[in-house]
Design a protein around this nucleic acid. Sequence first.
DNA 1: CAGGTATCCTGTCCGC
DNA 2: TGCGGACAGGATACCT
Length: 306
Amino acid sequence: MRRSLLPVLVGARLSVVALGAHDVRSRGRGRVRAVGLRAKDSRAQPAWISPSALLHCGVVRALHRHGKQLAIEAADGRVLVIQLGMSGQVLLEAAGARPVPDTHRHIEWLIRSSSGHDARLVFRDPRRFGGVHPAGSMIDLRANAWRDLGPDALGIAGAQLALRCAGSRAIKIALLDQAVLAGVGNIYADEALFRARISPVQAANRLSRQQFVRLAAALRAVLRAAIARGGSTLRDHRSALGELGTAQARHRVYGRSGLPCFRCRATIRSIRLGGRTTAFCPACQRVTTNLTKSAAAGARPSSRRR
DNA sequence: CAGGTATCCTGTCCGC
DNA sequence: TGCGGACAGGATACCT
């Protein structure tokens, strides 16, 4: 998303030109509604968000990404973070084209590039689990909202991952925790665990050093490959230019429950973990008991608890 | 602390 | 064809 927006947005001037009828999420402020619109009969009145917070009249200096969040930074320092959630989209359209009426288009900006070309930027999100989060500056953003995010998954190293997976929760749960590591969601957590041949239910703090190294490499590889293919279009996902992703054709376990494993032909299983459907190969991804030094030296396994 | 579940939403699909 | 229920790419608040 960031890469596709880069050539169009950087250096361009934004102006908020249209606002949808629905409220959207905003970190720390609950749900927000843009100024100028009245809330309909919703019980919890959403707070206001000003055009200024939406970068009205701002010139885009840079686009930053950390994990699943995109930050648009204006030359005057203002920042707007966009998070897509489950169904969010950022779309670039020709300014000339008449927008199709659509209740899920929440924010629209006119983009005036320095070369005089106009375009439209749209934040669309049917389920409204995504949202926009203003920040005063990148310094402010990194010191506050982004402080809670772990290192970005695309550059994660095995040793780093091991350090951050201290608890005894299932490794899949840890991978989905954006404070541990930023940028991994349900699809790629399952895919990376399969690639690294690690069971999703294995306790995070029981992975061996080699397993962490394999897992970190698998995460980087799976994410890089998916980005190169424009992401996984299960249903709605599109690039900002409207292109479909093709990474779903490469899924080895996600969405393949009941089908044979590509590696060993065993049947892919599906369980629920942390409320999320989790697919894995029960043969390739076994829980391993990694003996620690003391256990290998003869300590009773049961005495290692606590 | 860890894990489960409900919640925020809309759309789609499936079985009846 | 209609209807209820399950489920979906995410994150968090609140239970046990």
